[in-house]
Computed example of a mutant assay.
Amino acid sequence: MMIVDLIDEVDFKERLIALGAPVTQEQSLAQVQAAVLSWLQEYPEQTPFIKDLCLDMQKNETTVLPEVSCVVATFV
């Protein structure tokens, strides 16, 4: 049996919420993207934390769903 570390929409939102981003589980990925980009404009000091999260998701041996990967790419 193979176990795959998978990052889906719920996991991604949980990680953003843990960083203090103003997102909720109810938002679509497009809404999350817009909310985080707006938040980063207002609080640019948060940018390194979001970038680190996204880079970590991209480089680790995790599988990121394509729709999540597209949003992640906008933050790197």
Rank of each mutant, 00 (worst) to 15 (best):
E14D: 12
V36A: 04
Q27W: 14
V68G: 04
V4G: 04
N60Q: 15
V64W: 06
V36D: 06
A34C: 06
R15E: 02
D11R: 00
P48M: 03
V72Q: 00
L65I: 03
R15H: 11
L55S: 11
G20Y: 10
F49N: 13
Q25A: 11
E26F: 15
V64F: 11
P44V: 05
V10G: 07
E45F: 15
K51I: 11
E45G: 08
A18Y: 12
S69T: 02
L65Y: 07
D11C: 01
E42F: 10
D52H: 13
A18V: 03
E61I: 10
E26S: 13
A18I: 05
L29M: 06
F12T: 05
E67Q: 07
A35E: 09
V4L: 10
E9K: 15
Q46C: 03
T62E: 03
G20C: 04
S28P: 01
E26T: 14
W39A: 02
M2R: 13
I3F: 12
Q58K: 11
Q25H: 12
A21C: 15
E67I: 03
A21S: 14
V68N: 06
D52M: 07
E45K: 12
S28K: 11
V76D: 02
Q46G: 01
L65F: 09
M57I: 12
V4F: 15
V64G: 03
D8C: 10
Q58V: 05
A35Y: 08
I17W: 12
M57Q: 09
L55C: 12
T24Q: 14
L65G: 02
M1A: 14
D11M: 03
V23I: 15
K59S: 13
D5H: 09
L55M: 13
S38L: 07
Q41I: 01
E9G: 13
D8W: 10
Q31D: 12
I7E: 07
L6N: 01
V76G: 01
A73P: 02
E9H: 13
